[in-house]
């Protein structure tokens, strides 16, 4: 419980906006439920990934093809997640929730708040996402699981991004993603592979607006490799290619080394080391990442 308290009552209140204000208590209730009930989806633990920073089921930085929670055919799953990332000059807070219907459709909502610790002020956006499983299964299908998804992003205040040269204050990403578990691939351990191809005009995921002087939309590749050290503990690396649309704020690819522990089907904790490169003119942003997800 100490952990929960420290995540929900940080020294500076992160929940300044209405959506987050609702999500936080909702999350607390979800966690309480998760601890109390024993019902969970029937999919194997870990096969729903964790909550990525844009709300969809995935790793930390990138959405995966798997759908959130462990809901299977004829089952419904709900997850809620709270995430914090600290890099040299910024701090990102994400609260999000997602729903899995019959392991076919996933919808998600996330609120991102980026505190500009060095520059002053903050940036924020809401992300509404949907993902559809096209075919397959991450464990049982020879081709793994394939999904398409979209993420509609809306900046809360577009003043700073527009001043930096962004064309728009909202945008929509679409992506195609494939995930596959290789059984007993490394020293008897299962290995999870994921590849995502994303069409986007978002600068720094959308927090710096959409489009710019150099380019508008482009295709970006994202990928990750994870080794299940135990069935409940996965360690891996993730990479996300990024566009570079703004002349005044160079943008780099993102990468992380992650570590996710599934206590059970209801609760997972992800820790990661991030290397995000330049963000809004400040170089070499590295730091830590913690994310807690509850599912039921």
């Amino acid at each position: 419980m100490m952990l929960f308290q420290s995540m929900f009552s940080p020294p500076t209140a992160p929940f300044r906006h209405s959506l987050s204000g609702y999500l936080a208590p909702c999350l607390a209730v979800c966690l309480a439920f998760a601890a109390a009930t024993s019902s969970a989806g029937s999919r194997i633990v870990g096969t729903g990934g964790v909550s990525a920073i844009e709300g969809a089921a995935g790793g930390g930085l990138s959405p995966w093809a798997v759908l959130t929670s462990t809901a299977s055919e004829q089952e419904i799953g709900v997850t809620a997640a709270a995430t914090r990332a600290w890099v040299d000059d910024y701090r990102l807070t994400v609260t999000g929730a997602s729903l899995n219907v019959y392991d076919r459709i996933e919808v998600s909502v996330a609120r991102q708040t980026l505190d500009l610790d060095t520059l002053g002020g903050e940036l924020g956006q809401d992300i509404y996402g949907a993902k559809v499983r096209l075919l397959g299964d991450v464990l049982y299908h020879p081709w793994g699981i394939w999904s398409v998804g979209m993420q509609h992003k809306q900046l809360i205040d577009g003043t700073i991004p527009t001043a930096l040269g962004a064309d728009k204050t909202s945008g929509t990403d679409v992506y195609l993603s494939a995930s596959k578990l290789l059984f007993s691939a490394v020293a008897g351990r299962n290995v999870l592979l994921n590849a995502t191809l994303r069409n986007t005009n978002a600068n720094q995921g959308g927090l710096l607006g959409f489009g710019g002087e150099q380019r508008s939309r482009s295709w970006m590749a994202e990928g990750s490799v994870g080794v299940f050290i135990t069935p409940q503990w996965v360690v891996g690396a993730e990479y996300r290619q990024k566009p570079d649309n703004l002349i005044v704020a160079k943008e780099d690819d993102w990468q992380s080394l992650y570590n996710a522990y599934f206590f059970n089907k209801h609760l997972s904790l992800t820790g990661a080391w991030l290397n995000l490169g330049d963000i809004a003119g400040l170089p070499s942003q590295r730091g830590g990442y913690l994310s807690l997800q509850a599912a039921f």
């Binding site: 299964d137 464990l139 049982y140 020879p142 007993s184 008897g188 135990t230």
Partner: peptide, 17 residues
Amino acid sequence: ALGARNELLGRLAPMYA
């Protein structure tokens, strides 16, 4: 052991189809 378990599950998984 986990390695043997994973390998057996890996050999059974394709039977899903």
